[in-house]
């Protein structure tokens, strides 16, 4: 999975491209370390080109979300596809995240 991070003064955005599955999760977790460190800001996960997510990816999202809750920041998820929305629904993640679809 490709991860590209950009930032402004108030927010940090990570664009996730590809599959967030078990084999890719460890690397993705490391690449998202800057977001963990900036969890007092607005964290934006751009999932426009994310094709798939499994429980190991959900763990990463929830860890970020917990960190943001503890530090006073927030997590916004941009553009998830129908299959990923289904996974979010199945796991109650729809209620835990602010999700914006363009």
């Amino acid at each position: 999975m490709e991860v590209t991070i950009t930032q402004t003064e108030q927010s940090m955005t990570a664009k996730l491209v590809g599959r967030l599955d078990t084999p890719s999760s460890q690397e993705v977790s490391q690449k998202l370390e800057p977001l963990m460190e900036n969890a007092d800001k607005e964290l934006i996960l751009d999932c426009t080109e994310m094709s798939y997510i499994s429980s190991s990816g959900l763990r990463i999202l929830l860890t970020l979300r917990k960190q943001a809750a503890a530090k006073g920041g927030k997590v916004v998820i941009l553009n998830i596809n129908d299959e990923i929305r289904q996974v979010f629904m199945m796991t109650g993640f729809l209620n835990l995240f602010e999700i914006k679809n363009a």
Binding site: S54, S55, R59, L62, T63, R65, K66, T91, G92, L96
Partner: peptide
């Protein structure tokens, strides 16, 4: 459960 109370694992 809420964000604070949700355990990280167990969803697989």
């Amino acid at each position: 459960l809420s964000v604070e109370d949700r355990p990280i694992g167990g969803l697989g």
